[in-house]
Design a protein around this nucleic acid. Structure first.
Lengths: 245, 245
DNA sequence: CGAAGTGTGTCACCTCGCTGACACTCGACG
DNA sequence: CGTCGAGTGTCAGCGAGGTGACACACTTCG
């Protein structure tokens, strides 16, 4: 899922670059933004035709905080990109709940399930008020077939997610919880802050909240972080990085 | 990395299907096999031209048991596919060694690093005598650019690996070691056998060998498996599956 | 303002898996 | 056929992290 955690500013910038006056269509700007999300374009720049093709097929949907976008076991409903807000992907419930990933603006999901023709294996829940751009399955397939540049980019995007996923596995194997927590905080930070409750962070590591809390308080005493309500501020990212190993 | 764990028989079959008499080139048969490895072709069947293009660029290399194919930090030397034998991908050394993956015949690697222009993050070591087919970076890029069907297939292949990687993360989070071991054995079994020493299996789960050994002996007492020298035989896969949760 | 819901801090107890060690067994190879 | 390296079986002690519980703080919304 993780792809590029573009700050909102990047979107604005992209929009400005592409905006050609009042007539510039919102859909085209959205499509250009999606193109940026789906892999960086060094190897495969998109042409105007590619962006237009994307724009023609995008739909916008909005969910309120706490809403469930889909549940594990559902068939994938095309491909979607988070434009605003965060979406939590989790497996299991109650005490056994594990958070597979937290999608940030710019992250893409649903493509894997479509490509492999498999059901969704996790449940998606909006952590904030969320806007997603979506693309139905047929349109996605058509895009890939008719726009080689888009297919090439999508390949980079999926490859990027695979690399992230593998480095997460390495992070989980044989590391102490302290190292894992330091790494998680660095990975999830946006503008020096991790705006997630401890319960969610604990579920991302597959540990219990008290265990996480203990480590967080140690970090706070050492001046590495600042524990706030439903959020954590990073005070010394460099030192946190050395702690992560 | 895991893609399709094709038994040797599948390769033979593919070769037979494509063999057009004594003149059939070995390289073309190899290329057809690679094409099967890289995603199943429902959505994007390969044409004759695609297979020929693959064949033109393949090189064969052989490594003996224990040889190091590359070390973490090296630049990716193109894309390669395991044709025969197994290759262990690991991070760290000594007590901290973790096994990221064990490549089986048919598995592909090196493409991700090339696509993202990143160095290899793990060390590859031959577990048996190994033959790999390899493809240099320029040829790979050319293939993707000029053969949309291959690009489409490669996308499925990477997507498949991402799905595998994610399900491994779910397996690691919040599961008891017993469940993890059961799942690992099922995932790694080839013809009802897991031909790996306990030390390697332990490194795949990021645990110590005595911990793994204890669970294995419990499974053996329960009649689920049979512990052999540097190998484990599955006696009751169905029951093992229920143990995996 | 005040209640309800959600998040945080902390504790005592207990289990699971790590540590380091040692004896034994298997298989390859000279 | 004997030797050596690699793999396996097992143990006692220890520490990290899970469990369940409870008090308190923050926020939100009526």
């Amino acid at each position: 899922m993780a792809l590029s955690k573009l700050p909102a500013a990047a979107m604005e910038q992209t929009m400005r670059l592409l905006g050609t006056g009042p007539a510039a269509d919102l859909a085209i700007r959205q499509a250009a933004w999606v193109a940026r999300c789906v892999g960086r374009g060094e190897a495969a720049p998109l042409g105007r035709a590619d962006v237009d093709a994307l724009a023609a097929t995008l739909r916008t949907r909005t969910y309120e905080r706490g809403a469930v976008l889909f549940r594990g076991g559902d068939a994938a409903d095309g491909v979607w990109i988070v434009q605003r807000g965060r979406v939590e992907l989790s497996v299991g419930a109650g005490r056994r709940r594990s958070v597979v990933y937290v999608l940030q603006p710019g992250d893409v999901d649903g493509d894997i399930q479509h490509l492999l023709d498999m059901p969704l294996t996790y449940t998606a829940r909006a952590l904030d008020e969320v806007t997603v751009l979506s693309l139905d399955a047929a349109a996605f397939e058509k895009l890939l077939a008719e726009h080689p540049q888009i297919a090439r980019r999508w390949l980079s995007s999926v490859a990027q997610r695979l690399a992230t996923s593998q480095s997460r596995i390495v992070g989980l194997l044989g590391r102490s919880l302290t190292e894992q927590v330091a790494r998680l905080l660095l990975d999830e930070a946006v503008d020096g802050e991790v705006p997630l409750p401890q319960r969610t962070l604990a579920a991302m590591l597959g540990v219990q909240r008290p265990s996480l809390n203990k480590i967080l308080k140690e970090f706070e005493r050492a001046g590495l972080i600042e524990v706030r309500y439903a959020a954590i501020g990073l005070r010394d990212p460099a030192k946190l990085l050395t702690t992560a190993g």
